[in-house]
Nucleic acid binder design. Structure first.
Lengths: 126, 126
DNA sequence: CGAAAAGTTAACCGGATGGTTGAATATGCC
DNA sequence: GGCATATTCAACCATCCGGTTAACTTTTCG
């Protein structure tokens, strides 16, 4: 199941991961803070974030000993585009989408300009 | 993973199933005909159709010894609504959606004039 | 330095998934 | 009746998934 679209839908097929995405819509968050509201181990959340990152829905950036998680628009766009292509029932305005996300993703937590459009996931030292 | 939305996304997370949905967009089809283009057993396709049906994306209706598969709008709508609620980036026009599907799904099983209003071909996921 | 904090990784477990083959159940047809 | 067609069901298998706990790395700080 290597194709990106399948990864995206599979990532969305879990309520915990959808909740994480919703949380990240508010703000970039550290892994520990992402995990806080959930009744499961930090390791489990770390795995969920890995799934989201593999799908391209989230990127992680290490700063000090904290890893900051942020939404990445690209993958969601691909799912959106598929839905559009499928049913033609969603008049997706991709420009509006970009604008919305730029608006939402412009955060003060990571004010590096490198975060502007770095599609590279897995910056984790590995 | 009982919630409907998870079932829908999980169902969409497979290229074979997305291809099936795309095929069904053209026309209602018998299980055997759905299976024809795929290089896998009929039983496997039957299972896929079961997954799609559990997700509410497809309904099956027996007529004689043939089971006709057709798209069902409701589940897709739920996924669409979630995306809308999530990102607010898709101005989903549900009425247009309904109209589109009514148009597409109104084809009586043996009524083949759905080609009148040609929908643009769409991208197979995967 | 040494301990605490932030995350990942590894090993493990039970249950779901995606596929197979073969038998079973309806239904249609001669 | 009897056979072919259409489809599911059942058993089985390998793999993946979501969770756990324990160990490990990296970074911060007294």
């Amino acid at each position: 199941m290597t194709d990106q679209l399948s990864l995206v839908f599979a990532a969305l097929a879990d309520p915990t991961r959808r909740a994480i995405l919703t949380m990240l819509l508010e703000d970039d968050m550290a892994v520990t803070d992402v995990a806080a509201p959930f009744d499961m181990s930090l390791a489990a959340i770390s795995k969920h974030l890995g799934v989201l990152a593999d799908a391209g829905l989230v990127t992680r950036e290490k700063r000090g000993r904290v890893i900051w998680c942020k939404l990445d628009p690209d993958a969601l766009k691909s799912a959106s585009v598929w839905m559009q292509g499928f049913g033609q029932f969603e008049p997706v305005d991709l420009d509006a989408f970009e604008r919305f996300l730029d608006d939402h993703l412009r955060t003060d937590i990571l004010d590096d300009d490198a975060s502007a459009h770095s599609p590279s996931p897995n910056i984790l030292g590995g």
